[in-house]
């Protein structure tokens, strides 16, 4: 599973149970984010742990932040899945906004490096 454009790349590595996101995401509203949302949801599958690696995602607009919220709520509804977000302490939007996702699901593990 992979979505690749000049601006961003999203792919799933099943052996690591990790979805990697990199580049600049400034899509127009939830409709344009739908394919990425579908990739994220399909990665939930039967795995007990899922990791979303954002360490190379330099930019995410607020529609993208809403998409992540939507994903967190889907995982929350599934119950019994450990969700990990891997972020970078060098990317400002991640240091400012990722912690908000924990308010939707306090068991989220935020791993900054």
């Amino acid at each position: 599973m992979e979505i690749k454009t000049d601006d961003y790349q999203i792919w799933y590595e099943p052996e690591k149970s990790t979805v990697f996101c990199s580049g600049y995401l400034r899509l127009n509203g939830s409709e344009e984010y739908q394919p990425i949302m579908e990739l994220l949801i399909s990665a939930i599958g039967a795995q007990p742990i899922i990791t979303i690696n954002l360490r190379k995602l330099e930019f995410l607009n607020s529609s993208g932040i809403s998409m992540l919220s939507m994903f967190v709520i889907k995982v929350r509804q599934n119950g019994n899945i450990q969700l990990i977000f891997e972020g970078s302490s060098k990317i400002l939007w991640q240091t400012k906004s990722l912690k908000n996702l924990q308010r939707l699901m306090p068991t989220i593990n935020l791993d900054f490096s």
């Binding site: 939507m70 889907k74 908000n100 308010r103």
Partner: peptide, 12 residues
């Protein structure tokens, strides 16, 4: 409000 809107955003 932020938390409420996040929950709302999740419904699109």
């Amino acid at each position: 409000l932020y938390l409420r809107q996040m929950e709302k955003a999740a419904t699109g």
